[in-house]
Design a protein around this nucleic acid. Sequence first.
RNA 1: CGGGGAGUAGCGCAGUUUGGUUUAGCGCGCGUGGUUUGGGACCACGAGGUCAUGGGUUCGAGUCCCAUCUCCCCGACCA
Length: 417
Amino acid sequence: MFWTKAFIPTLKEIPEGAQTASHSLLVRGGFIRMLIAGVYTYLPLGWKVLNNIEKIIRQEMDASGAQELLLSALQPQELWINSGRNKEIGQVMFRFADRRGRNLCLGPTHEEIITDLAKKNIFSYRQLPLILYQIQVKFRDEIRPRFGLLRSCEFIMKDAYSFDCNEEGLKMSYKKMRQTYARIFKRLGLTFVEVEADPGLMGGGISHEFMAVAAAGEDIVKYCKSCKYSVSSSVATSRCPNCSRSLEKINAIEIGHIFQLGTKYSGIQEAHFLNAEGKEKPLIMGCYGMGVSRIISAIIEQNNDEDGIIWPTEVSPYKIIILPLERNGRVYEVALGIYNSLKEDFELLMDERDEYAGIKFKDADLIGIPLQIIISSRLLRENKIELKIRRTGERRILKSDKIDEVITTTMKDIGPI
RNA sequence: CGGGGAGUAGCGCAGUUUGGUUUAGCGCGCGUGGUUUGGGACCACGAGGUCAUGGGUUCGAGUCCCAUCUCCCCGACCA
């Protein structure tokens, strides 16, 4: 992609009201724009980041044996009334009527919908176990949306649901999802902790939260320095249950929350199956939420410096940015040559704008592309070009004809693509 | 919803206290021309505003009063 053809509206100044690094940098870097409070447009860069995250999630979910589907965002209120959660969820759910007066809502979550699907389509233990997931927009009329993508009224969630014959099966599905979550967050370059949590509105028994450690996080994790025990602040504990020391508090962003629902929904909604003995039983369910758009913020909170974002390579909207410091002549020709020789292997951004060098450096650092290739007449006189690794600031000068092999090894140094 | 802050050009802001040199400014950005080109350059000219909206007070309102809308912060909620 050539910068002059791209839509990357960067800003010099911190947007009014942006309180966190992630919010400010997402707006400044041209990743998102606010429409109304808690509702954001994903610009091309933001959309690419989101897609990269989703790709990782899909790969790991699919590898775990889960299957992707897409449930509807538009839902009948009836299902919520039947499950008893219509009142419980209160004003968080957007409700309205269609032209026929049918009461609808925009899905804040999908337990009722998936349970209804299971009720109508799962009949036998032979169909179990089963894990289904989707990546979809959720709508919640938040009391107070804030911090950009961290708490918004329209956000993207990956939600998965497991169906098993019995408790042992649920425990296995739960364990599998828990491990899958850990793998996903590791690949996303996140520093996180798994904590015991309160299931709250979801109901059921055991529940765990995945918390990305970040000062900007709205959640508090309580943890024990000596034995590493950690627990959500939603769970009432005053001392470590293992070694009875007092617990430290750290701020964190809740990026995932998994639940052993048991029969909470299948019982009420009568989603039954026949077991091997021919007896009718409610499906044993688990559900597994992951805040996909929130993960973008979490990654930035953990990966930024005073110059901007530092994307993990797999997430970065482009893997390499090429910076010809002149727009014409040999500098640009060499840059174009490098672009053409690398474009098959890497997603490239070529900043061929007619701008002052400083502007290109600042923007490249701001949008956080992991590797910069800088081409200047100064170095070109010795047939050399320069690489700058965004995360470390390390600069490598190399012969311009060695570019292909050096780039490949340098990118390997930086991390998985 | 309760408490606090704010709304003036695309972005960031000053001006409002004490109404009248304000035909409303500054920085950045934007357009044209020129000089520049390794860390957000410089010169010249230029475009861009219902001062959030609606009422009111006044000879006169960005500035005072009332109402409404919107955004941000603290609290309850959550991926």
